[in-house]
Write a protein that binds this DNA or RNA. Sequence first.
DNA 1: CAACATAGTTTCATTATGCAACCACTGGAG
DNA 2: CTCCAGTGGTTGCATAATGAAACTATGTTG
Lengths: 156, 156
Amino acid sequence: MVKRTSFEGDGCPIARSLEVIGDWWSLIIIRDAMLGLRRFGEFQSKLGVAKNILSARLRSMVDHGILETAPASDGSAYQDYLLTPKGRGLFPILVALRQWSEEFDDAPEEIDTIMIDRAKGRPVKKLELHAEDGRLLSLADITLKPRPAPRRRSAG
Amino acid sequence: MVKRTSFEGDGCPIARSLEVIGDWWSLIIIRDAMLGLRRFGEFQSKLGVAKNILSARLRSMVDHGILETAPASDGSAYQDYLLTPKGRGLFPILVALRQWSEEFDDAPEEIDTIMIDRAKGRPVKKLELHAEDGRLLSLADITLKPRPAPRRRSAG
DNA sequence: CAACATAGTTTCATTATGCAACCACTGGAG
DNA sequence: CTCCAGTGGTTGCATAATGAAACTATGTTG
C-alpha cells in the first residue's frame, strides 16, 4: 500500500489524537464551531474550503463523535452541526495552539485577536500543567511510563 | 491555484500555528525529539517515515526555528536535530493532544503510556486555563476581541 | 409550479505522501 | 589511499488527499 501512513492502532495517545483531528481542516472547523458556527454554509463561506472537503470533514467528525447533527435552530429543514462534549474537549488543544503562536510567532503583529476572560475582559493566563500536589511542571519535569494494567473485576 | 490552502497571512493564531505544524508528521517528530531523539536515522527507524518526507519536515522545522542543527553529540561528523526554545514551547500542545485522547478515546485500553510527574512518579493533572485572577476558565468563559494596537515608542 | 438557496456529490486537475532506488559523504579496515 | 559498510540524504514514480467547478437533489419562497 502507498496510502498515507495511519497512526491507528498506535499506542501513543498523541498519535491517536492526530489520527482523528490531525488533518489540514478539522481543527479549523472546530475552532469556528466553538465560535458559534453550525451550518454547512456558514463554515463553507467563512472558511472558503471546498464543499467536498468540508463535507468529508464534517462526516468524519460526526463519525468520531466530535460533532453531532441536529435539526436546524432556525426552524428550517436543514441541519446544524453541533459540538459534542468530546468536541468541546478539544478546547485546550486550540488554546495551546493559539498561545504558541502568541508567544513564538515570527510576525505577531499579524495576529488579529486575543482571547479574553469574558467576566473581566482581561487576557487569560498561559495554560499550565500541574502535578497532583500542585507544582507547576514543564517538559523536563515529566516522563512516560507504561500504562498500568486496568483492574479486573472478575474473569479471574 | 489548486494547491493546498495556505493559512499564511491569516490573522488567527490557531491557523498560524497549524500552518507551521499542522501537517501529518511534524508533531510526531517533535514528540520524539522531546523524548530525546536527535539523529536523522533515529527518527527514521523509530517512526518508519519515508526519508524524503522526514528530510522535508526536518528542513521545514529548522527553517521555522523549531529545530536547530548541531554537531552530533557522539563526535561523528553528522548532525543532531535539537529542539529550540520555540520547539520546546510546543509542549503544551502535545500535552493537550495526549490528554484529549486519554479522556475521550474510543479505545483507551490501547493507550500504552501515561505521563507522570518525574519527581513523585504520579500522573499529572489536566491542563488548566486560568484568568488573571486565578479563576479556572472553560470554553464558555472566554471570548475573543480584536488585538489592541501596539504602543508606539516614537515615529510620531 | 417557477425561481432561487442550501447542502451536498461527482469529476477532474494538482499537490502531498509513500516507497524504492540511487547518490554523496563518513569512518574504519587494510 | 582504496575498499566497503553505514549514514543522510535526493530523485523518480505511484497513489492518496485536496481543490475548483460543475452537477444534483432537496428546501424555501412566492
